[in-house]
Design a protein around this nucleic acid. Structure first.
Length: 736
DNA sequence: TATTCCTGCCAC
DNA sequence: AAACGTGGCAGGAATA
């Protein structure tokens, strides 16, 4: 079709016509007004809003603002933006009305005791139950349940039982409902399905309800079916995969808790749909997983049982030494203040010469870059501590101070002052929020409403203490990822090292620095040496595709030396090199890699794509820029391939071991899982733990998930009253 | 004024 | 040319 509408010429003609009329004082029509506004500089979201307002006006859903009409004002963009909030309201109402209208007959609102009893009777006979709690908010330690969604698949019924809605309508009393429902959660042979089950389990636990049957979490399952998904929200997944258009909570109700929904019929149509969608999603997942039996088995045996383990671990929580935090914070603050004034003395006058009207802020990287460039007379690319500041610190005293300042501020603001603020009123403890598939490889992440347990520096760990009468026992997998690589690649030299109990990082450090093995292995106090730590980073980084220039920079040697080092490393381990190549080639061919024993996939679709050949020196061209970006994405995927296999397989080992450790904890009084950090499990146990009991922990670590028959696991145990202060097993038992 | 993006940095 | 993988968070800067 060659019909051109709305050409630029037309537009400018239109615009000038409007301008003319404006000059003439002639009022414009609404459609002219919108055309004028479309002509203005509008962002994409603005354009959508303008269109929505125009459509709503055309449909007669909304009109112009009365005050503007009275004053004879033209339609302005500002008015359109204000009208948009009205459009949203109207749309929200319309959606809710439509939802209520379309409520299926098998959704039942339960507001009488008789009805509740019949629902309970039906649920007690069910082999599959979907559950979901509606709440005041998402804080599992403080917000309350306001209603229960229970779906029975056998009888195809979806109940909503409101208990704490602010409504004139009648609803049953919360505790009564909870007591009645409790047995329906305790059917050991029943399958319980939920979306983001961890949240509901915490909420139920606070109501003394325990889910005793098998669990299926459609959210965690989805993370395994596609770890690259944009969103794991139920409504988004339902819209995308079930083709059931579903609106998110906020679109329908805005920023209020579900208890504010006073019309219970509306509450029913929304809430019961959750149960309905969750089951349909489960059904969808089963269809796909039946084609991947090894993945299905892994999900069933590991990921799903793990949920209750995480819930228990999060519930354990952390005791924070608030007095220590206060004292430590004070000391930090004093030193920070001192350094701050010393830095300002130098930088403020200098900044005045650059930007006289602005107030200097050391914490601003943009300002700091300018001022430091001027001070050093060098054009600094950034204010990166390791890359840029460290080398400068030899020459400039002030940079040394700056580095110290940055280090302390990070510790103070991110950790020391923040931790005590996150202590819950619930039990006076801090609680983490673990995401069992937070990383695409299957590793944990943690954070969100709680705290990130995975990146606490030693300075912050000092605030975490064992509860009264307890001791923390930390158990890590010794060289977890490198053992995993040895097992996967069957590299004889690595396997040999582990068989004879040699530490590969120390061996490498000994070779690289030409110093005795013992000297670079451990410090006198038992901690890791600087050299060994460095080799650990270098080894893993090299394995994961680090370039020669970066390696040279990290080791502080020239590129030739770095190249030799890398070549030596791989030449001495040909099977390792072969495994890396094979893994990359598999990713190129299939667009994904398998983790240990095909238990899960890491999908890397970019790996399948070819890279462009780019002639040298063509980097300034836009088209080549695009190609370069494409190439870097493809190459990134190829680096990810072996990394994902190692990191993900190791994560599986940690997860299986967590479940086994949890089972051991359940057998003993006062034992609880405290936390996990990738290759480490920490258990809280009574102080009077015996050596025999310590052996239980050790054997779970070593035998819980063996790497085949060839590579033994190893573990180091640490005993701690304070997370940062560690006793070895020997010291712990002899000091008493 | 509130949200999102960017820079930098902590952990394994 | 860029060249180390997985995350989360604080504070400043930019945007709406």
């Amino acid at each position: 079709m060659n019909v051109r509408l709305n050409t630029n010429d037309n537009k400018s003609a239109l615009t000038s016509a409007i301008e003319n009329r404006k000059k003439e004082g002639v009022g414009e029509s609404i459609s002219d007004a919108f055309n004028r506004i479309y002509e203005m500089k509008n962002t994409e979201p603005d354009l959508r809003k303008i269109k929505a307002v125009q459509d709503a006006m055309n449909d007669g859903l909304i009109g112009r603002e009365q005050s503007s009409v009275e004053k004879g004002k033209k339609l302005t963009k500002a008015e359109v933006m204000r009208l948009y909030t009205q459009v949203q309201e109207v749309e929200r109402k319309r959606l809710l009305e439509k939802m209520v209208e379309e409520t299926p007959d098998n959704y039942e609102l339960v507001t009488t005791e008789d009805h509740l009893q019949s629902a309970v009777n039906t649920l007690l006979e069910s082999s599959i139950i979907v559950f979901d709690v509606e709440t005041e908010g998402t804080d599992v330690w403080h917000d309350r349940i306001v209603g229960y969604v229970m779906s029975t698949i056998d009888s195809d019924k979806h109940y909503y039982i409101p208990t704490r809605h602010k409504t004139e309508e009648s609803q049953l009393e919360h505790d009564l409902v909870t007591d009645k429902l409790r047995p329906t959660f305790e059917l050991e042979d029943t399958l319980y399905i939920a979306h983001n089950a961890k949240f509901d389990l915490h909420m139920l636990d606070r109501n003394n309800v325990e889910v005793k049957g098998r669990l299926w979490d459609t959210m965690e399952a989805m993370r395994l079916l596609n770890e690259n998904e944009d969103s794991y929200a139920l409504k988004v997944l339902a819209t995308k995969y079930l083709k059931i258009k579903s609106y998110k909570y906020g679109d329908l109700f805005g920023q209020v808790g579900f208890e504010e929904v006073s019309d219970l019929t509306t509450a029913l149509s929304y809430a019961a749909k959750d149960g309905d969608l969750t089951y349909k999603l489960y059904d969808f997942q089963m269809k796909h997983l039946s084609k991947m039996p090894s993945v299905l088995e892994y999900i069933t045996e590991v990921e799903m049982p793990l949920i209750k383990v995480i819930v228990e671990m999060e519930k354990t929580g952390f005791v924070i030494d608030e007095k220590y935090a206060e004292q430590y914070g004070k000391e930090l603050n004093e030193e920070i203040e001192q350094l701050h004034s010393e830095l300002n003395e130098v930088f403020v006058p200098l900044f005045k010469t650059i930007e006289p009207d602005k107030e200097f802020n050391v914490n601003s990287s943009t300002q700091l870059k300018k001022v430091l460039s001027k001070y050093t007379g060098k054009n600094l690319p950034n204010t990166d501590a390791k890359k840029t500041l460290k080398p400068l610190s030899k020459e400039f005293e002030i940079v040394r101070k700056l580095l110290r300042y940055k280090e302390l501020v990070k510790l103070y603001s991110t950790y020391i002052t923040t931790l005590p603020k996150k202590i819950t009123e619930y039990d006076g403890k801090l609680h983490a929020n673990f995401n069992q598939n937070g990383a695409a490889t299957g590793r944990f992440s943690s954070g969100g409403g709680g705290i990130n347990l995975q990146n606490q520096p030693d300075g912050a760990r000092a605030l975490f203490v064992a509860p009264e009468g307890k001791i923390l026992v930390g158990a890590d997998f010794k060289a977890q990822e490198i053992r995993c690589v040895a097992y996967l690649s069957e590299e004889p030299s690595l396997i040999h090292a582990f068989e004879v109990g040699q530490d590969p990082y120390a061996t490498m450090a000994s070779n690289f620095y030409n110093r005795p093995y013992e000297e670079v292995y451990k410090n006198e106090d038992g901690s890791d040496t600087k050299e060994r730590k460095e080799m650990k980073v270098v080894w893993l980084a090299t394995l994961y595709g680090m370039s020669v220039p970066s390696l040279a920079e990290m080791l502080g040697v020239d590129k030739n030396k770095a190249k030799d080092f890398q070549e030596d490393l791989f030449e001495s381990m040909p099977k390792l090199k072969g495994w890396i190549d094979d893994t990359k080639n598999f990713a190129i061919k299939h667009g994904f890699v398998w983790l240990d024993n095909k238990q899960r996939k890491r999908r890397l679709p970019k790996a399948k794509e070819r890279t462009y050949h780019i002639p040298y020196g063509k980097y300034y061209d836009d088209e080549f820029k695009k190609q370069r970006l494409h190439n870097s994405e493809v190459n990134r995927s190829l680096r990810q391939a072996p990394n994902a296999v190692v990191q993900g397989s190791s994560a599986i080992q940690t997860k299986v071991t967590l479940i086994k450790m949890y089972e051991e904890c359940k057998k003993r009084e006062g034992w609880r899982l405290w936390c996990t950090v990738h290759d480490e499990l920490i258990v809280e146990v009574p102080e009077d733990i015996t050596k025999e009991e310590v052996d239980v922990i050790r054997s779970v670590m070593v035998d819980g998930y063996p790497w085949g028959e060839t590579v033994p696991n190893g573990t180091d145990l640490e005993f701690m009253y304070r997370w940062s202060e560690k006793y070895s097993e020997e010291d712990w038992f002899t000091r008493k």
